[in-house]
Design a protein around this nucleic acid. Structure first.
Length: 731
DNA sequence: ATTCCCGACGTTTTT
DNA sequence: CGTCGGGAAT
């Protein structure tokens, strides 16, 4: 009677039809999760259990949200307006746009992206006169972010801080919050944090949303962090109709605060919860699934489930031993080229641990004229030229935004350097106004008399465009701004080599704005900026074009390909060095491997290089994950040339033991290197290029992560990473 | 004020 | 290796 239940297995059908009360769906890789989610949504609507606007469905990426929305629409034969399938962040942004006043923000608040946020932290650090070397803006911002993800306000953080370092972080946090508010800005974390504040503490607002949403659905629940967890708690009404879908084996965002306990403890959190496991894998061959399952079985923190493959046995996992990153790329591109005979390029993907690894593959692919696309890397909207242009738009939309102000007040050059900006900032602080508000009234401040002539054109420009922006579509607006600033010719003059691509990026930006204007009809500048802030490169990715895809393992989550190449499988790279001493982090790396391997439908290739350039040269040994795959599933190919070592050791390398300088690496799999920095132990006297002579007084960690405390004469104790410092043992 | 050069420093993954 | 920031030179 209801075709929504067609071609679903029993577990899937149960998941779709269990609509009332808390429900946990454990969805193994390739088990038809998206299908279940969309059918479930459609089922609720089809059965008239709720109106579209009464359902809240959240995912982690805009792309996933968009796809889900579309699939539900096509299941129900029409477009579903008002169905809010969105990301956590965009849902919160929309809610806050409406309710910002309740928290004392203006509704045109600006969303500070990562870069903006770090630069604000940095200026706070400078303002406090704190040593920037001791308190790196990025690290501080990370701490603030972690705090917010735990719903720890600056005040609470400050009251529990002890010791100089924590107390200083607390001061930075407090000032950062103050400045952020003055800018009428929210960072990414605030979107979630403030939403929780509202839902929790504001009776009227909380009630409104709790009454509205009759059904709540969350995808990728294993990746939710504490704030997101709280947000759900506070938005779910008395009905407790909450359905979460996830897979603890695919939790790979712990470093961003995701708390795997959310999914592990769901049944405790929501008493009476039903649990449905989807264990039938429809994607991969038995071999691939067997390899992935064998590896993940080494993890302790699991609910435990067994995936069954319905596919064929398939080819063995191919394992490549190569000399270095270049040969690795060359050989893999060989395989890609050959594979082209029966697999289209868009069905092949190269997965790596760090973005930096993409370069070698790009080179090889370009050399062979094989089309490719990279997902991720430097996000489009984070490019300098785009950020600059965006800063104009942001300042026009929000004159309180001092961060954007500082970015563009002297770009293009207006002869307003650090000194002038300093004067403006001081005035701003004194008058409790934003920088822009100060210069908009520059003539009433004698301090600005000297630079008045240089300020006026800038104010004039911003004012003219502010008046304009409601009258025209956003792309024309941006175009006029670019023309007015003469950005194109400035970019071309500025830099011969990258100027051209920057201009192209500006053009692409305007193109994107045009698309936005076309699809969203008449919108405000604020809406447009919001959509950009929450946009990621991944959202634009489509595997439809006939191109090989290069992407990180993280970015690959949720995607699938016929052939998958997981490269750089070396201890120290994958798993990363820092994860190797910590069992929890190691488990996360293992899950990452599991995610990667289960992206493959038919063929899985792994590769490991015996030496790889990373800050000078580092020898490496095959990833421990390789050994966790049953041998009978692997077809190993040794492409190493012997003898291997032809390079001369760099200064840093000479610190390592001599075992690596042996000319020939034995045939096959096993080679090791001395992980100790010979002689770098307490008591020794060392020579440092900048600090001079010093005595090692403490050591911590080993190998790559060896940290030393060295007492330098006349300087004091310094903490130094042995792998970076060019230390020489002298006594 | 701007430009250019050098050294320090860091690198995971991203909504 | 690349980026970024600081400092000196123009």
């Amino acid at each position: 009677m209801n075709r929504l239940l067609d071609d679903l297995n029993e577990a899937q059908r149960a998941a779709v039809t269990t609509t009332e009360g808390p429900l946990l769906i454990i969805a193994g890789a390739g088990s038809g999760k998206t299908r279940v989610l969309t059918r479930r949504l459609a089922h609720i609507l089809y059965e008239r259990l709720a109106e579209p606007y009464q359902i809240l469905a959240v995912t982690f990426t805009n792309k996933a949200a968009g796809e889900m929305q579309q699939r539900v629409a096509s299941l129900l034969g029409g477009c579903i307006e008002k169905l809010s399938v969105s990301t956590f962040h965009s849902f919160c942004a929309r809610l806050l746009r409406r309710e910002a006043g309740e928290l004392g923000y203006d509704t045109s608040f600006t969303i500070f992206d990562d870069i903006d946020s770090v630069s604000l932290v940095k200026s706070c650090i400078t303002e406090l006169g704190v040593n920037v070397n001791q308190f790196a803006p990025k690290a501080q911002r990370r701490k603030i972010s972690n705090a917010k993800n735990q719903m720890t306000s600056a005040d609470v953080f400050a009251s529990s801080a002890s010791g100089y370092f924590e107390e200083t972080t607390a001061r930075i946090y407090l000032l950062y919050e103050k400045r952020l508010r003055e800018c009428n800005g929210m960072d990414f974390d605030d979107l979630l944090y403030n939403t929780v504040l509202l839902l929790k503490d504001n009776k009227a607002v909380g009630e409104r949303y709790r009454n509205r949403f009759r059904y709540v659905m969350v995808d990728e629940y294993q990746d939710t962090n504490h704030v997101q967890y709280l947000m759900l708690k506070h938005i779910i009404g008395a009905h407790h109709n909450v359905c979460v879908v996830g897979d603890e084996d695919q939790s790979i965002y712990g470093w961003r605060g995701a708390d795997i306990r959310n999914i592990l403890d769901f049944e405790k959190d929501y008493p009476g919860a039903k649990v449905i496991k989807l264990e039938q894998n429809y994607r991969s061959t038995q071999t691939i699934l067997g390899a992935a399952s064998a590896v993940i079985a080494h993890n302790e923190a699991r609910k435990g489930k067994t995936l069954h493959s319905s596919g064929q046995v398939g080819d063995p996992v191919k394992l490549l031993y190569v000399d270095n990153a270049e040969t690795e790329a060359a050989k893999i591109v060989d395989y890609i080229d050959q594979g082209r005979l029966d697999t289209p390029l868009n069905e092949m993907a190269v997965l790596y641990r760090t973005n930096a690894q993409s370069r070698a593959f790009e080179e090889q692919l370009r050399r062979r004229n094989l089309p490719y696309q990279i997902v991720g890397g430097i996000a489009f909207y984070q490019r300098k030229e785009i950020k600059d242009l965006l800063a104009y738009l942001k300042l026009i939309a929000n004159p309180l935004d001092d961060v954007s102000f500082q970015r563009i007040i002297n770009y293009p050059k207006r002869s307003l350097g650090a000194k002038s900006v300093g004067v403006i900032m001081e005035l701003a602080r004194r008058e409790s106004r934003s920088c822009y508000q100060i210069i908009a009234n520059a003539d009433s401040y004698p301090e600005l008399a000297a630079i008045l002539r240089r300020l006026m054109p800038f104010v004039d420009l911003v004012e003219r465009f502010r008046k304009k922006h409601q009258e025209m579509p956003i792309d024309l607006f941006a175009q006029e701004l670019v023309d007015e600033l003469k950005l194109i010719s400035i970019l071309l003059d500025e830099d011969k080599t990258v100027g051209r691509t920057r201009v192209e990026n500006i053009e692409a930006f305007i193109e994107g704005a045009a698309t936005f204007a076309r699809t969203n009809g008449p919108t405000t500048l604020v809406d447009y900026l919001e959509s950009i802030s929450l946009y990621t490169d991944l959202d634009a990715y489509q595997a439809t074009e006939d191109k090989v895809t290069l992407l990180t393992l993280h970015a690959a989550k949720g995607l699938e390909y016929d052939s998958v190449f997981i490269v750089g499988l070396e201890d120290g790279l994958f798993p990363l060095q820092r994860a190797m001493d910590d069992p929890m982090e190691l488990e996360e790396e293992r899950r990452l491997f599991y995610v990667g391997a289960t992206r493959a439908r038919k063929r899985l290739y792994l590769s490991t290089a015996s030496s790889r350039f990373r800050f000078g040269e580092v020898m490496s040994i095959p990833s421990r994950f390789i050994k966790e795959i049953p041998e009978e599933l692997i077809d190993a190919v040794n492409l190493k040339t012997l003898p291997t070592r032809t390079h001369r050791p760099t200064p840093a390398r000479s610190l390592f033991g001599d075992s690596t300088t042996d000319a020939a690496v034995p045939e096959g799999v096993h080679y090791e290197w001395d992980n100790d920095h010979a002689g770098l132990r307490p008591g020794r006297i060392v020579q440092h290029p900048t600090f001079g002579r010093g005595k090692i007084v403490g050591a911590d960690g080993f190998g790559e992560s060896l940290r030393l405390e060295i007492m330098f004469t006349g300087i004091g104790i310094k903490k130094i990473m042995a792998k970076y410092a060019r230390l020489k043992v002298v006594g």
